[in-house]
Amino acid sequence: MTAEVVPIPRKKPTLDPMLALTANGMNAVNSVILDRMQSEIPLIPALAGHLISGGGKRLRPMLTLAGAELVGYTGDRHYKLAAAVEFIHTATLLHDDVVDGSDLRRGKAAANIIYGNPATVLVGDFLFSRSFELMTEDGSLKVLKILSGASAIIAEGEVDQLTAQRQIETSEERYLGIIGAKTAALFAAASRIAAVVGECDDAQERALDDYGRNLGVAFQLVDDAIDYDSDAAEMGKDQGDDFREGKMTLPVILAYSRGTESERKFWKNAISGIKADDAALQEAISLIDKYNAVEDTRERARHFASRAVDAISIFPDSKARAAMAEAAHFAVARGY
């Protein structure tokens, strides 16, 4: 008689190894952030602190710290640079919420709802300026080029997304280009600068850039899937925000391309804003489910996460490499 083989359940990936790896370093980074967001104008630290203390994952600065661990860097330059990365990210979020007219960010009222659009934009500008101060203090022209270049690419990606908004014929290729710019560019830069401060060779620098870039694409793909398969409590924002704003994300692109003529007509009306109420959102979710568009979006995310893990395989096995690999798998498995 053959014994029944009981499969061992796979442990769900978490950020815990990455959090443990970077905990001490993040204390130093947070000290820099708190110091540099201060101003004699009280509104600036109040508004910046509303978002910075809002419970974000801080994944981008963690990538700089983890990358430094991976390459064996033992100095302290990366703390200020990781803070610069977080300031760039926070500034883009503040600007995004104004552009999108968002009501929620990380589960609470968005800064623009509390403080108004003008103040939110200007504090975003302040944080960008602080990030460039930190870069110039580091003194590396190469680091400055990487992070300033990423900032420009992010802005280009946001403008490209804006011009693709409510354009139902947006292709998957263009969508991937948009998220490669607006999200993945900063992930790539945050990872790559660790190799620069660690004085790594070109191959190692490219590997960390590839890791961050592929992780960033995977992360955004999952964010876009979450908008159609999680509730507001999980997401920290209203479900269907992307839908109401007419954003062409991959779940919509796939459902539209696979739909019938009548379903495509629905999508054209919905994305154009003619019909985007709660009933339309539920119909959209139903069509996305019908054509497996969320799962296929997550499957593409898994592909990019695997590429991220492969990219750092050139480095010796270590706690840092394992933590970074698990962070890539977590980016795909998460529901928030």
Rank of each mutant, 00 (worst) to 15 (best):
residue 62 M to S: 09
residue 269 N to L: 12
residue 139 G to L: 09
residue 197 V to I: 13
residue 3 A to T: 12
residue 184 A to S: 13
residue 79 Y to F: 15
residue 196 V to S: 00
residue 122 L to I: 07
residue 265 K to T: 15
residue 325 A to S: 15
residue 336 Y to Q: 13
residue 181 A to P: 00
residue 249 T to S: 14
residue 17 P to V: 02
residue 130 R to K: 15
residue 220 Q to L: 09
residue 166 R to V: 01
residue 253 I to R: 10
residue 252 V to C: 10
residue 66 A to Y: 04
residue 298 R to G: 08
residue 91 A to W: 14
residue 248 M to C: 13
residue 312 I to V: 14
residue 59 L to D: 04
residue 320 A to W: 11
residue 170 T to K: 04
residue 38 Q to H: 05
residue 133 E to D: 15
residue 199 E to S: 13
residue 46 A to F: 02
residue 294 V to I: 10
residue 3 A to W: 03
residue 85 V to C: 03
residue 210 D to W: 05
residue 81 L to G: 08
residue 185 A to M: 00
residue 95 H to M: 07
residue 75 G to E: 05
residue 30 N to W: 02
residue 172 E to M: 08
residue 56 G to W: 04
residue 267 W to P: 04
residue 259 G to P: 12
residue 212 G to L: 00
residue 113 I to A: 14
residue 139 G to Y: 10
residue 3 A to M: 08
residue 118 P to H: 02
residue 213 R to N: 13
residue 137 E to P: 06
residue 159 V to E: 10
residue 227 D to E: 08
residue 120 T to Y: 02
residue 135 M to D: 03
residue 1 M to H: 12
residue 243 F to H: 10
residue 197 V to D: 02
residue 110 A to Y: 11
residue 178 I to S: 03
residue 28 A to M: 10
residue 131 S to K: 05
residue 124 G to K: 04
residue 25 G to S: 04
residue 155 A to E: 03
residue 229 D to H: 08
residue 102 S to A: 15
residue 48 A to F: 06
residue 110 A to V: 09
residue 286 S to C: 11
residue 181 A to Y: 08
residue 95 H to I: 02
residue 302 R to Y: 06
residue 34 L to G: 01
residue 1 M to E: 05
residue 255 A to Y: 09
residue 28 A to C: 08
residue 173 E to W: 02
residue 178 I to C: 11
residue 274 I to T: 14
residue 124 G to I: 07
residue 182 K to W: 09
residue 207 A to D: 03
residue 82 A to T: 06
residue 41 I to Y: 08
residue 137 E to D: 14
residue 229 D to Q: 06
residue 293 A to R: 03
residue 296 D to T: 11
residue 246 G to V: 13
residue 69 E to N: 10
residue 195 A to G: 14
residue 56 G to N: 00
residue 256 Y to L: 07
residue 270 A to R: 07
residue 266 F to G: 07
residue 175 Y to K: 04
residue 198 G to Y: 07
residue 234 E to Y: 06
residue 164 A to S: 13
residue 254 L to G: 05
residue 50 H to D: 00
residue 297 T to A: 05
residue 23 A to P: 00
residue 292 N to D: 15
residue 324 M to K: 00
residue 289 D to H: 14
residue 288 I to L: 09
residue 157 G to V: 05
residue 209 D to V: 00
residue 272 S to H: 06
residue 147 L to A: 01
residue 20 A to D: 10
residue 239 Q to S: 15
residue 199 E to H: 13
residue 125 D to A: 07
residue 165 Q to F: 01
residue 310 D to T: 13
